[in-house]
Simulated scan of single mutants.
Amino acid sequence: MKAFPMFIRTARAGIKASPPPKPASTGHICLVGAGPGARDLLTLRAVERLQKADVIFYDRLVDEEVLDLARPDAERVFVGKHVGAHTWPQDRINRMIVTEACKGKRVVRLKSGDPGIFGRATEEIDAANEAGIAVELVPGVTAVSAAGAMLGRSLTERNVADVLVLATGTGCASDPAPDSTRHSGPGTTTAFYMGVRHAERLAHDLIGKGLPSDASVDIAVEVSKPGQKHLTATIGTLAATIKREKITGCAVLLVTWPKCLVMENVDFPRHAGFLPAQRQALPA
Protein backbone atom coordinates (compact mmCIF):
# COMPACT_ATOMS: atom_id res chain seq x y z
CA MET A 1 0.00 0.00 0.00
CA LYS A 2 1.39 3.39 -0.94
CA ALA A 3 2.39 5.47 2.07
CA PHE A 4 0.99 8.96 2.32
CA PRO A 5 2.79 11.90 3.87
CA MET A 6 2.11 12.23 7.55
CA PHE A 7 0.12 15.45 7.24
CA ILE A 8 -2.33 13.76 4.75
CA ARG A 9 -2.88 10.78 7.02
CA THR A 10 -3.51 13.07 9.93
CA ALA A 11 -6.05 15.12 7.94
CA ARG A 12 -8.00 11.95 6.99
CA ALA A 13 -8.23 11.08 10.65
CA GLY A 14 -10.09 14.34 11.18
CA ILE A 15 -7.25 16.13 13.00
CA LYS A 16 -6.01 19.40 11.62
CA ALA A 17 -2.37 19.07 10.69
CA SER A 18 0.22 21.59 11.86
CA PRO A 19 2.03 23.35 9.02
CA PRO A 20 5.71 22.55 8.61
CA PRO A 21 7.99 24.88 10.61
CA LYS A 22 9.12 27.99 8.79
CA PRO A 23 12.84 28.63 8.44
CA ALA A 24 14.22 31.24 10.80
CA SER A 25 14.28 34.74 9.35
CA THR A 26 17.80 35.23 10.68
CA GLY A 27 20.68 32.88 11.27
CA HIS A 28 23.17 32.97 14.08
CA ILE A 29 26.85 33.63 14.70
CA CYS A 30 29.23 31.30 16.50
CA LEU A 31 32.71 32.41 17.53
CA VAL A 32 34.75 29.21 17.50
CA GLY A 33 38.20 28.65 18.98
CA ALA A 34 40.36 26.79 16.45
CA GLY A 35 43.05 26.03 19.02
CA PRO A 36 46.79 26.62 18.55
CA GLY A 37 47.10 24.84 15.22
CA ALA A 38 46.76 21.03 15.33
CA ARG A 39 43.25 20.09 14.29
CA ASP A 40 42.99 17.25 16.81
CA LEU A 41 43.16 19.87 19.58
CA LEU A 42 39.75 21.25 18.61
CA THR A 43 36.87 20.52 20.94
CA LEU A 44 34.01 18.29 19.82
CA ARG A 45 31.69 21.28 20.00
CA ALA A 46 33.96 23.26 17.69
CA VAL A 47 33.89 20.45 15.12
CA GLU A 48 30.10 20.22 15.35
CA ARG A 49 29.71 23.94 14.71
CA LEU A 50 32.07 23.78 11.75
CA GLN A 51 30.10 20.92 10.21
CA LYS A 52 26.86 22.86 10.49
CA ALA A 53 28.16 26.20 9.23
CA ASP A 54 26.98 27.74 5.98
CA VAL A 55 29.80 30.29 5.87
CA ILE A 56 33.11 30.42 7.78
CA PHE A 57 35.18 33.55 8.31
CA TYR A 58 38.65 32.44 9.36
CA ASP A 59 41.88 34.04 10.61
CA ARG A 60 45.40 33.97 9.21
CA LEU A 61 46.65 31.53 11.86
CA VAL A 62 43.95 28.91 11.30
CA ASP A 63 45.45 25.77 9.77
CA GLU A 64 44.03 24.41 6.49
CA GLU A 65 43.49 21.01 8.12
CA VAL A 66 41.07 22.65 10.54
CA LEU A 67 39.04 24.02 7.64
CA ASP A 68 38.87 20.50 6.18
CA LEU A 69 36.58 19.58 9.08
CA ALA A 70 33.87 21.87 7.74
CA ARG A 71 31.09 20.86 5.36
CA PRO A 72 32.44 20.63 1.80
CA ASP A 73 29.83 23.07 0.53
CA ALA A 74 30.39 25.67 3.26
CA GLU A 75 31.64 29.02 2.01
CA ARG A 76 35.07 29.96 3.34
CA VAL A 77 36.13 33.59 3.65
CA PHE A 78 39.66 34.58 4.68
CA VAL A 79 39.68 37.65 6.93
CA GLY A 80 43.22 37.44 8.25
CA LYS A 81 45.24 40.42 9.40
CA HIS A 82 48.95 40.95 8.89
CA VAL A 83 51.08 43.41 10.80
CA GLY A 84 50.82 46.75 9.01
CA ALA A 85 48.39 45.39 6.38
CA HIS A 86 44.86 45.22 7.71
CA THR A 87 42.94 44.44 4.52
CA TRP A 88 40.15 43.29 6.81
CA PRO A 89 39.74 45.91 9.55
CA GLN A 90 37.63 44.80 12.50
CA ASP A 91 34.59 46.90 11.68
CA ARG A 92 34.43 45.37 8.20
CA ILE A 93 34.53 41.86 9.67
CA ASN A 94 31.75 42.82 12.09
CA ARG A 95 29.56 44.01 9.22
CA MET A 96 30.21 40.91 7.12
CA ILE A 97 29.36 38.33 9.76
CA VAL A 98 26.19 40.21 10.73
CA THR A 99 25.14 40.59 7.08
CA GLU A 100 25.49 36.88 6.42
CA ALA A 101 23.60 35.97 9.58
CA CYS A 102 20.77 38.33 8.57
CA LYS A 103 20.40 36.24 5.40
CA GLY A 104 19.47 33.27 7.60
CA LYS A 105 22.90 31.63 7.43
CA ARG A 106 24.74 29.81 10.18
CA VAL A 107 27.95 31.81 10.49
CA VAL A 108 31.13 30.58 12.13
CA ARG A 109 33.82 33.09 13.00
CA LEU A 110 36.85 30.83 13.33
CA LYS A 111 39.65 32.25 15.48
CA SER A 112 43.00 30.75 16.40
CA GLY A 113 43.45 29.70 20.01
CA ASP A 114 40.59 30.76 22.26
CA PRO A 115 38.37 33.54 20.87
CA GLY A 116 38.04 35.10 24.32
CA ILE A 117 41.81 35.55 24.83
CA PHE A 118 43.24 38.45 22.81
CA GLY A 119 40.83 37.55 20.01
CA ARG A 120 38.73 40.74 19.82
CA ALA A 121 35.64 38.65 20.46
CA THR A 122 33.90 41.42 22.40
CA GLU A 123 33.61 43.64 19.33
CA GLU A 124 32.01 40.88 17.28
CA ILE A 125 29.67 39.87 20.09
CA ASP A 126 28.58 43.50 20.47
CA ALA A 127 27.93 43.77 16.72
CA ALA A 128 25.76 40.65 16.80
CA ASN A 129 23.83 41.86 19.86
CA GLU A 130 23.18 45.26 18.31
CA ALA A 131 21.74 43.55 15.23
CA GLY A 132 19.62 41.19 17.32
CA ILE A 133 21.53 38.13 16.10
CA ALA A 134 21.96 35.13 18.38
CA VAL A 135 25.64 34.62 19.16
CA GLU A 136 27.55 31.74 20.79
CA LEU A 137 31.11 31.47 22.05
CA VAL A 138 32.93 28.13 21.76
CA PRO A 139 36.21 28.07 23.73
CA GLY A 140 39.42 26.68 22.32
CA VAL A 141 42.84 25.57 23.55
CA THR A 142 44.90 28.72 23.95
CA ALA A 143 48.52 28.92 22.78
CA VAL A 144 50.12 28.96 26.22
CA SER A 145 48.42 25.68 27.16
CA ALA A 146 49.85 24.08 24.02
CA ALA A 147 53.25 25.60 24.82
CA GLY A 148 53.26 23.98 28.26
CA ALA A 149 52.35 20.66 26.66
CA MET A 150 55.14 21.02 24.11
CA LEU A 151 57.63 21.73 26.89
CA GLY A 152 56.32 18.79 28.90
CA ARG A 153 55.79 20.73 32.07
CA SER A 154 53.17 22.45 34.14
CA LEU A 155 52.66 26.20 33.83
CA THR A 156 52.24 26.42 37.60
CA GLU A 157 54.32 24.76 40.28
CA ARG A 158 53.85 24.66 44.02
CA ASN A 159 56.40 26.79 45.90
CA VAL A 160 57.73 28.15 42.61
CA ALA A 161 54.98 29.87 40.62
CA ASP A 162 51.37 29.66 41.76
CA VAL A 163 50.09 32.54 39.59
CA LEU A 164 49.73 32.34 35.79
CA VAL A 165 49.52 35.68 33.97
CA LEU A 166 48.41 35.98 30.33
CA ALA A 167 49.57 39.26 28.83
CA THR A 168 49.88 40.75 25.37
CA GLY A 169 53.05 42.41 24.21
CA THR A 170 51.32 44.56 21.63
CA GLY A 171 48.45 47.00 21.82
CA CYS A 172 46.14 49.12 19.69
CA ALA A 173 46.17 52.69 18.39
CA SER A 174 44.87 54.06 21.69
CA ASP A 175 47.29 51.95 23.78
CA PRO A 176 50.25 50.99 21.58
CA ALA A 177 52.54 49.99 24.45
CA PRO A 178 50.50 48.34 27.20
CA ASP A 179 52.01 47.80 30.64
CA SER A 180 52.44 44.11 29.93
CA THR A 181 54.60 43.26 32.94
CA ARG A 182 52.61 44.96 35.71
CA HIS A 183 51.47 41.64 37.21
CA SER A 184 54.83 39.88 36.91
CA GLY A 185 56.75 39.20 40.09
CA PRO A 186 57.95 36.45 42.42
CA GLY A 187 55.74 33.39 42.23
CA THR A 188 54.41 34.10 38.73
CA THR A 189 54.72 32.65 35.27
CA THR A 190 53.92 35.25 32.62
CA ALA A 191 52.96 34.22 29.10
CA PHE A 192 53.45 37.02 26.61
CA TYR A 193 51.33 36.72 23.48
CA MET A 194 52.27 38.77 20.40
CA GLY A 195 55.47 39.82 22.11
CA VAL A 196 58.15 38.98 19.54
CA ARG A 197 58.34 42.50 18.09
CA HIS A 198 58.35 43.98 21.61
CA ALA A 199 60.86 41.63 23.23
CA GLU A 200 63.41 44.34 24.00
CA ARG A 201 60.85 46.51 25.80
CA LEU A 202 59.42 43.55 27.73
CA ALA A 203 62.87 42.45 28.85
CA HIS A 204 63.78 45.98 29.93
CA ASP A 205 60.58 46.27 31.96
CA LEU A 206 61.10 42.92 33.69
CA ILE A 207 64.69 43.73 34.59
CA GLY A 208 63.49 47.07 35.91
CA LYS A 209 61.05 45.24 38.19
CA GLY A 210 63.90 43.19 39.66
CA LEU A 211 64.13 40.02 37.56
CA PRO A 212 67.83 39.11 37.14
CA SER A 213 69.10 39.53 33.57
CA ASP A 214 70.27 35.89 33.54
CA ALA A 215 66.75 34.56 34.27
CA SER A 216 65.65 31.99 31.71
CA VAL A 217 62.97 32.59 29.07
CA ASP A 218 61.26 29.94 26.94
CA ILE A 219 60.36 30.90 23.37
CA ALA A 220 57.65 28.56 22.07
CA VAL A 221 57.27 28.99 18.31
CA GLU A 222 54.36 27.72 16.17
CA VAL A 223 53.18 25.42 18.97
CA SER A 224 51.33 22.24 17.94
CA LYS A 225 52.09 22.90 14.27
CA PRO A 226 54.51 20.89 12.10
CA GLY A 227 57.15 23.62 12.36
CA GLN A 228 57.00 24.06 16.13
CA LYS A 229 60.25 24.67 17.96
CA HIS A 230 61.49 25.59 21.40
CA LEU A 231 64.27 28.08 22.03
CA THR A 232 65.73 29.29 25.29
CA ALA A 233 67.31 32.60 26.14
CA THR A 234 67.87 34.80 29.14
CA ILE A 235 65.98 38.00 29.78
CA GLY A 236 69.17 39.85 28.89
CA THR A 237 69.64 38.04 25.55
CA LEU A 238 65.96 37.65 24.59
CA ALA A 239 65.78 40.35 21.90
CA ALA A 240 69.11 39.32 20.36
CA THR A 241 68.08 35.65 20.29
CA ILE A 242 64.82 36.43 18.52
CA LYS A 243 66.67 38.53 15.96
CA ARG A 244 69.43 35.94 15.44
CA GLU A 245 66.95 33.09 14.98
CA LYS A 246 64.77 35.24 12.69
CA ILE A 247 61.61 34.56 14.67
CA THR A 248 58.82 36.57 13.07
CA GLY A 249 55.84 34.23 13.31
CA CYS A 250 53.53 33.18 16.10
CA ALA A 251 55.38 32.64 19.37
CA VAL A 252 54.68 32.69 23.10
CA LEU A 253 57.31 34.01 25.50
CA LEU A 254 57.22 32.24 28.87
CA VAL A 255 58.91 33.84 31.86
CA THR A 256 58.83 32.05 35.23
CA TRP A 257 59.80 34.19 38.20
CA PRO A 258 60.34 31.79 41.14
CA LYS A 259 59.24 32.78 44.62
CA CYS A 260 62.73 32.24 45.96
CA LEU A 261 64.41 34.96 43.86
CA VAL A 262 65.47 37.89 46.01
CA MET A 263 64.67 41.36 44.71
CA GLU A 264 67.26 43.84 45.86
CA ASN A 265 67.27 47.60 45.44
CA VAL A 266 63.88 47.60 43.71
CA ASP A 267 61.29 50.12 44.85
CA PHE A 268 57.84 48.79 43.93
CA PRO A 269 54.98 51.27 43.69
CA ARG A 270 51.80 50.25 45.45
CA HIS A 271 49.83 49.99 42.21
CA ALA A 272 52.20 47.25 41.03
CA GLY A 273 50.62 44.85 43.47
CA PHE A 274 53.59 44.39 45.81
CA LEU A 275 53.27 46.05 49.21
CA PRO A 276 56.43 46.65 51.24
CA ALA A 277 55.42 43.98 53.75
CA GLN A 278 55.12 41.43 50.98
CA ARG A 279 58.52 42.36 49.65
CA GLN A 280 60.17 41.92 53.03
CA ALA A 281 58.56 38.51 53.47
CA LEU A 282 60.33 37.04 50.47
CA PRO A 283 62.78 34.29 51.41
CA ALA A 284 66.46 35.04 51.22
Rank of each mutant, 00 (worst) to 15 (best):
G37N: 05
A3I: 14
T43W: 01
L67G: 06
I15Q: 14
H230Q: 06
T237H: 01
K105P: 11
V79P: 09
D267Q: 13
A46K: 04
A199Y: 01
S154V: 06
L61A: 09
R95E: 14
T26V: 13
V163F: 07
F4A: 15
T87M: 09
R279I: 14
P269H: 14
T43I: 05
Y193E: 07
D63Y: 10
D162S: 13
G104E: 01
R182K: 15
A127K: 06
I15D: 00
E264S: 11
L42H: 02
V138F: 02
L155V: 10
G249A: 03
E64M: 13
E124D: 04
E48C: 11
Q51G: 07
F274N: 15
P226Q: 00
L42S: 08
G116V: 12
K81H: 03
G116I: 10
S145C: 15
L44P: 10
R9H: 12
G236D: 06
L110S: 06
H271M: 13
A101Y: 08
S154C: 12
T99Y: 12
V255E: 05
Y193R: 05
H271T: 15
P89S: 03
V77Q: 07
E75L: 10
D214A: 08
T241Y: 02
L41A: 04
R39I: 15
G84C: 09
E245L: 01
K225M: 10
T232K: 11
T170D: 14
V196R: 02
A272Q: 13
R197D: 11
D267G: 14
A161R: 11
I97R: 07
P258C: 00
A134C: 12
V32D: 00
G27Y: 04
W257H: 04
V77H: 09
E245Y: 00
L69A: 08
F78T: 03
I117R: 02
A143Q: 07
T168G: 06
Q280E: 15
H86S: 04
P5S: 07
G104R: 08
Q228G: 02
M194T: 14
A146E: 01
V107H: 01
S154Q: 13
E124L: 04
P176N: 03
V141Q: 12
L155N: 13
P21C: 09
I125K: 11
I235P: 03
V135L: 01
V221R: 04
A101W: 08
A101T: 07
A121K: 11
A70F: 05
Y193M: 04
V135I: 05
V160K: 14
I15E: 04
E157S: 13
L166F: 12
V223A: 04
R45F: 01
I97T: 03
C30I: 14
A11F: 11
K243A: 05
L41I: 05
L275Y: 13
S112W: 02
Q228H: 00
G37M: 08
R92S: 15
D40Y: 00
I15H: 07
R158Q: 06
N94Y: 05
L151Q: 10
P283C: 02
T256S: 09
F268K: 04
R39C: 15
A121R: 06
K22F: 08
A131R: 05
T237K: 00
A203I: 03
A38W: 00
A131W: 00
S224D: 01
G148L: 03
E245S: 03
G273V: 10
P23R: 15
L31Y: 06
V266Y: 04
A277K: 15
P269Y: 12
